[in-house]
Design a protein around this nucleic acid. Structure first.
Length: 276
DNA sequence: CACGAGACCTGTTCGC
DNA sequence: TGCGAACAGGTCTCGT
């Protein structure tokens, strides 16, 4: 579910409810949710012993990771496809899809809710061990159009899979990749090293504009997940197969790229003809 | 190096 | 109504 704007929205929502609270208990309902330390019985006990008593100092985000800065360690959580983080009374019944809960001294608990069980958590001393390989933050001031252009030149991959590669750029997922490419007027299958500096600048603007609009809307809420986000009402291409392109009216087309649904306007995002 | 397929999971929607 | 197929916001690993 979550891409950069959704994760940022969740982190912002959690911060006031968690910052300054001390963890008093931990429950691991689906062992594989814990990536580090490894989910053996022995390690699970050491996880609980280690996290209980630590205070949550701050809640942040890097790429699609939610980062809880604790007294001595860092807890990183990746929501993957269906994960969600909730704060609820500790005495409430455990929901069917709760995978990990952390009880707090104030009577509430943080619950990692994740129907598809793809989500993961890491308790580590050094967060760089988990997020160290991530690419730049797309909204950071150091991520310029020139940086993007150089990155595109250095690779010869199709744009869509490249934008989804978190080591290339951190935070884009299927929604914002499609929305960025549509805004830039670039076909998802365009080879990155064939993109001109002018097109790279358009892509840079597209990425940042799509993410900023997503943030302004508090992210997208699709299906059963509702967090108040409403970016889904502003999609230009994503999941709009057959509906008119907001720019030119041409019906949006769906193709599959790297086993992911990909949506584009065939007029605004013309495919690159094989030239010699 | 770049790409496709399969794996990991459960739930919802679609087509017959 | 029932039932299987297709699909879902992500990422990893393997084979070519």
């Amino acid at each position: 579910m979550p891409e950069l704007p959704e994760v940022e929205t969740i982190a912002n929502h959690l911060r006031p409810a968690l910052a300054g609270r001390t963890i008093t208990a931990a429950r691991l309902l689906w062992p594989r949710t814990l990536e580090t330390p490894p989910p053996s019985q022995f390690q699970t006990r050491s996880f609980k012993r280690r996290i209980i008593g630590q205070m949550i100092r701050d809640v942040g985000r890097r790429g699609k990771f939610v980062i809880l800065q604790l007294s001595t360690d860092t807890l990183l959580i990746h929501l993957r496809m269906s994960g969600d983080l909730l704060v609820e009374p500790d005495h409430a019944p455990l929901a069917k899809h709760h995978r990990l809960t952390l009880s707090l001294e104030d009577g509430n608990r943080l619950a990692f809710h994740d129907p598809r069980k793809f989500g993961r958590a890491w308790l580590v001393k050094d967060p760089e061990a988990v997020v160290g390989s991530l690419g730049p933050e797309p909204l950071d001031k150091t991520f310029t159009a020139e940086v993007l252009y150089r990155g595109l030149q250095a690779s010869h991959r199709q744009l869509k899979p490249l934008l989804l590669d978190q080591t290339f750029l951190a935070g884009l997922g299927n929604i914002y990749a499609d929305e960025s490419l549509h805004r830039a007027g670039l076909h998802p299958l365009t080879l990155s090293n064939t993109v001109t500096a002018v097109q790279a600048k358009a892509l840079w603007r597209g990425i940042r504009a799509a993410l900023r609009e997503g943030l302004r809307c508090n992210g997208a809420s699709i299906d059963w997940v509702y967090r108040g986000g409403e970016f889904q009402n502003h999609f230009r291409a994503y999941q709009r197969t057959g509906q008119p392109c907001p720019t030119c009216g041409t019906p949006i087309v769906r193709i599959v790229v790297g086993q992911r649904s990909t949506h584009l306007c065939p007029t605004c995002q013309p495919s690159i003809q094989t030239s010699s």
